[in-house]
Design a binder for these strands. Sequence first.
DNA 1: TTGATATATCTAGACTATCTATGTATCCTA
DNA 2: TAGGATACATAGATAGTCTAGATATATCAA
Lengths: 113, 113
Amino acid sequence: MALAKGLVAASATPLILSILSHRDSYGYAIIEEVRKLSDGELQWADGMLYPILHRLEDRQQIESYWGASENGRKRKYYRLRKSGLKELDEQRNNWNKLHAMLMNLKGGKACFN
Amino acid sequence: MALAKGLVAASATPLILSILSHRDSYGYAIIEEVRKLSDGELQWADGMLYPILHRLEDRQQIESYWGASENGRKRKYYRLRKSGLKELDEQRNNWNKLHAMLMNLKGGKACFN
DNA sequence: TTGATATATCTAGACTATCTATGTATCCTA
DNA sequence: TAGGATACATAGATAGTCTAGATATATCAA
C-alpha cells in the first residue's frame, strides 16, 4: 500500500525540519535517512526534495553552506534556523491536534453497501 | 496560529470519511461538526468541502441521496461505502505511521542562528 | 579505458488538488 | 421585507508536489 500523496506532501516539510533539528545534513543524505526511518515506505525522489529545501531557504527557515565529503565531492549542507525550529514546533503541534481528532473519531457503524 | 495548508488538506479526506463512518451526514452539517471537533480551528469554507465530496463520490467511496430537514429544506446526504471505509483505514494507518516517525524524531540540538 | 553504479545537485513544466470567489435558492425571524 | 442562517454548486486562481531530464564526479570492475 502506497502512502497517500497529500499526506506524504504534508509530512515532507516537518520531516526535513526534524532531521535538520538533530544535525546539519544535505539532500542526498536526507533522502537516505527518510528511506531508513520509514523502513523503505518513503522513497523520495531527489527532484521533489530539492525544491522544498530551496523554498525553506527562501523563507529563511534553513540556511545552506558548501562542504565536502572525505573524497572531495562537494555537498550542500543545510542548517536549521530559529524560524525553522519555530515552524517545526508549530507543524508538530498541528500534526498532534489533527492526529488526535482523527483517532478520537475512531469507531462507528459496521454496516455498509 | 493558522494550521498549515498542506496538513489541513491532507486531513480533510480522512476527517470526512471518519465523520461519515459514524453516521450519514450532509455538507453543511459536516462543516459544523468539523468546526466543533476542532474547537474552531478548522473553519472549512463550503466551497472547499463540496468538491471533495464530489470527488469521493466519483471514486465510489461515498454515495449520496436526497433527504429533507424538518422544515422541508432539501439536503444531500452522504453515506460511507465499503471502499470508503477501506480508504479510511488506510489513511488512518498512514497517519499513524507518519505521526510516529515525526514524534520519534523529536528532540535535537539547542543552538541556532 | 570504458562502462556501471553510487554519490551529488538542479530546474522546467506537468499535474493535482485545495481554496477563493461567486452564484443560486429557501426558510425563519424581526 | 430585509437580513441571517441554511443549503448546494462550480469556475478559475493558486500553490506546491513530483516527474522527467540534465549535469557532474568518484569508485570499481572488466
